[in-house]
Design a protein around this nucleic acid. Structure first.
Length: 556
RNA sequence: GGCGCGUUCGUCUAGGGGUCUAGGACACUGGCCUCUCACGCCGGUAACACGGGUUCGAAUCCCGUACGCGCUACCA
């Protein structure tokens, strides 16, 4: 039995999307723990929150979940905030920007949590539990052995001051636990998963405050959501089983319930298991993931960055910033991990993403991270940029590698601009400019690819003689002769035609002689970019190198 | 173990009872272009987890099974 689609849409999307007064504009949040890195799955969750807020003219709040941190907060938070800023995901309230519900750091909101604990206690929604850990453990083990859900016996629940005194006289300490209902059904009307039901009786009495007085995540999260007026809790599916106890806290606090939307998790490449930063070794066994990693690694090495897989790997946002990915490409890819507009549209610029985003179109099943597809978005976004835009992206890499002086001189800019133009689609991420060292090294420092040198020059019949003749022909050119790609094409074509040869015979040898490698731009572009003097110098050097080692050892 | 969620090409997905001999994209692959590489263009392989229902008709609705994932902490 199906409801008409119009009605169905209304039933799934709350009134807030249609006729909500401004004061009811949605308020959503993302609450990272300051771990020192920004996980790509976290970015996807944050993106969906952000898009939802922007689409509906609501607020996106960035709250810091630091109840549990001992480490230096500033150091651990900076990479996360910087990551969001780099991606262009901004927040209306929260860390560093403040707002009407400040402070946005949980570690500074302890008094609120304490008040909530007392309110829950007073209302009978929670109790002080004096059980010792081993006693709780034993009950749990018993339940498991009996194959039923673990439910606390509440034998050590203090119902009166007298109970407390008695337990404390036994040397016991207490944590505060939720007094979960023992009957009925908890119904969650989830925007992405529909109605999810579970038995209240299957819920354990979760601890909300430890014996040492500190509070736990579920309590803090709900208290903050209430206080900050969060209307929609949009988070990863792993939190779905936690939702009943949170609903119970909302109710105990007498607060209205937000809408819930549980997003499918972002999974490992080729799997359904949640993507985790700790399993890099495993992911590197996936060829496509390894290729992405090596690509970034190559760039980091040329930049002489000290990177470790702990902080530099494709699960972490910083990886992409360092390699020179475009934020728009990453966001576009991430958007499609669990969301789609229709049966064709894939490329959506940010304004379109905002215009079209809706929670109703979020999928239900885990989506595995596909490095190749991410790269393909990156390529398409890069292709859409003008040469000058690419030049601006690439210059900092050359400066940081020390290949040009910083800040770039006008001459350097012009030179690099020509290289970028000739490179065309070969530069997929900004750091790829560092593949073209042949245009930046001194002629005498050019490194030859050994295999290419042997195949195209040393072992190629007639190649040395042709290179020598080529050198002489260029040297004999009038000083004012054009040395651009068109002129060079004419010259080379005539050169081989005069000898009754094809272009292929000379092209490969010359390429290796002047660029050191068998792949790259069109040869005429390479020669023009290098200029006459450097081409001559490199041809001459190649011939000298050949002469110095006329009979190389047999390749094994 | 218990509870919850999920299952369409290798991957991301479209799909809301007939228009599905299941569409798109990435990957893979054949070809074209070509001085290499990359780009681009044309083509191809490839999926409704399984079993029962309901119905004239099921990828689509219902039930079961299998498999996967998540939760089951005085973690978040």
């Amino acid at each position: 039995m199906r409801t008409p689609s119009r009605l169905h849409a209304t039933e799934k999307s709350p009134a807030v999307t249609l006729s909500a007064p401004p004061s009811l504009a949605p308020r959503v949040r993302f609450a990272p723990s300051p771990t020192g890195y920004l996980h790509i799955g976290g970015v996807r969750t944050a993106l969906f929150n952000w898009l939802f807020a922007r689409h509906h003219g609501g607020k996106f709040i960035l709250r810091v979940d630091d109840t549990d941190t001992q480490r230096n907060l500033a150091d651990a938070l900076a990479p996360i905030l910087d990551g969001f800023r780099w991606l262009g995901i901004d927040w209306d309230e929260g860390a560093e920007v403040g707002g009407p519900h400040a402070p946005y750091y949980q570690s500074e909101r302890l008094a609120l949590y304490q008040a909530a604990v007392e309110k829950l206690l007073a209302g009978g929604f929670a109790y002080r539990d004096y059980a010792r850990p081993e006693e709780t453990q034993a009950e749990r083990a018993e339940a498991e052995a009996a194959k039923r859900p673990y439910v606390a016996s509440r034998r050590w629940a203090a119902e009166s001051p007298a109970d407390r005194a008695r337990f404390e006289a036994e040397g016991r300490t207490s944590a505060v636990r939720l007094r979960m209902p023992r009957e009925g059904v908890c119904r969650i009307d989830d925007i992405v998963r529909g109605t999810v039901e579970s038995e209240w009786a299957a819920e354990a009495d979760h601890v909300i405050q430890r014996a040492d007085g500190t509070c736990l995540y579920h309590l803090a999260s709900v208290v903050d959501d209430v206080e900050m007026g969060i209307t929609h809790v949009i988070r990863a599916e792993e939190h779905l089983p936690n939702t009943p106890r949170q609903i119970f806290i909302f109710e105990g606090l007498g607060a209205p319930l937000p809408r819930f939307a549980h997003l499918p998790v972002v999974a490992e490449p080729g799997s359904r298991v949640k993507l985790s930063k700790r399993k890099l070794d495993k992911y590197l066994k996936n060829p496509e993931f390894a290729e992405l990693y090596q690509h970034g690694r190559r760039i980091a090495d040329r930049l002489r960055l000290e990177v470790s897989p702990e902080t530099f790997n494709p699960v972490i946002t910083d990886f992409y910033r360092i390699a020179g990915f475009l934020p728009e490409a990453i966001l576009n890819y991430l958007l499609l991990l669990g969301w789609s507009l229709d049966d064709k549209t894939e490329m959506l610029a940010l304004p379109e993403q905002i215009a079209h985003f809706s929670l109703e179109r979020v999928g239900k099943s885990a989506a595995s991270f596909d490095p190749k597809k991410l790269l393909s978005f990156q390529e398409r976004y890069m292709q859409a940029l003008s040469v000058d835009e690419r030049l601006a992206l690439v210059l900092p890499y050359l400066e940081q590698a020390g290949w040009i002086a910083a800040p770039a001189s006008a001459a350097d800019r012009e030179k690099v601009r020509s290289i970028v133009a000739a490179a065309a689609d070969r530069i997929k991420v900004s750091g790829d400019i560092l593949d073209y060292d042949e245009f930046f090294v001194a002629d005498e420092a050019l490194v030859y690819d050994p295999k290419a040198f042997d195949k195209r020059i040393r072992s190629a019949a007639g190649a040395p003689e042709l290179l020598a003749a080529m050198h002489d022909e260029i040297a004999a050119l009038p000083a004012d002769a054009a040395f651009d790609a068109a002129a060079l094409e004419k010259l080379l074509t005539a050169f081989v035609a005069a000898r009754g040869l094809g272009l292929g015979v000379i092209v490969h040898a010359v390429r290796v002689a002047v660029a050191g490698k068998p792949v790259g731009f069109g040869l005429f572009d390479i020669l023009a970019l290098l200029g006459r003097e450097r081409v001559l110098a490199r041809l001459a050097r190649t011939l000298r190198v050949l002469e110095a080692t006329p009979n190389p050892p047999e390749a094994s």
